[in-house]
Amino acid sequence: MIEAFINYTLLRNTLYAGLLVGLIAPLLGVFIVVRRQSMIADGLSHVTLAGLAFGLFMQKKYTLLMFTPFHTGILFSVIGALIIENLRDVYKAFQEIAIPIILSVGVGLSIVFIALADGINTDIYSYLFGSVAAISNQDLTLILWISILVIAFILTFYKRLFALSFDDEFARVSGVKAKTLNFFFILVTALVVSASIRIVGVLLVSALMTLPVATSMRVSNSFKQTIVYSIIYGEVAVVIGLIAGYYFEIPAGGTIVITSALLLGLTLLLKKVQLVLTIKKDDEHAA
């Protein structure tokens, strides 16, 4: 089954895209989780769905070939990010309210565009649940560019992002431009969300950004370690999930997230066993 991924160009593209997404989603996810903004990915993914549905509708109606649904998905996601930032400014004391607003508008628009584009078809199905289906060279190139941009952003602003995540007040006193950085952070999040949807689907994007991080946080001591382990857990889940999805003909979102959840469960169990053994050992020493 691995041969299939190596031998067929389009499947190979899917594997490459999966590896890229398995890297950038948990990488950004670490910052999202520690800043307690896990719901942002959910909000943005539903806006992206509206964009994807809009793209499908336009394709159907005007046979616009210049823009694919992937492009309109990215565009909607970025616009959604800008609106979230704006709403957070308007509702300073209730910043979390921005997410349900943007999420429900996203779903509302999606329903409208899906209906206009003649209902649920296989494309929508794969956008919702993810797929192992072929990813074109153009799409792969776009995902590659997004990945390069995200990695460059994190590397350049790593210290400032870390400072802001840990203690925003201290960060601002030491000269971190919090507002500007937050603005770019949410834009980058929008890009990662729209890139990840190709693989895991709208409904499970946030899982790929949070589950590997949740697992990693149980075993790592430092922030850097948390990032490295999150990426490893993310990549393992993507590779196993894609192969299983292909083999069992199941949308990749399901298999990737279940693999990720199994890794989390296994890690929690091992931590528990380790704790019991340590207590037992201490008791024996004491006795």
Binding site: K159, E169, A171, F223
Partner: peptide, 19 residues
């Protein structure tokens, strides 16, 4: 706020001071 920071934050003392 330093007193009420997120206690579960995965960072070492070295990383915090480096900020």
């Amino acid at each position: 706020k330093a007193n009420s920071f997120n206690r579960g934050f995965p960072a070492t003392v070295k990383e915090v001071v480096s900020i």
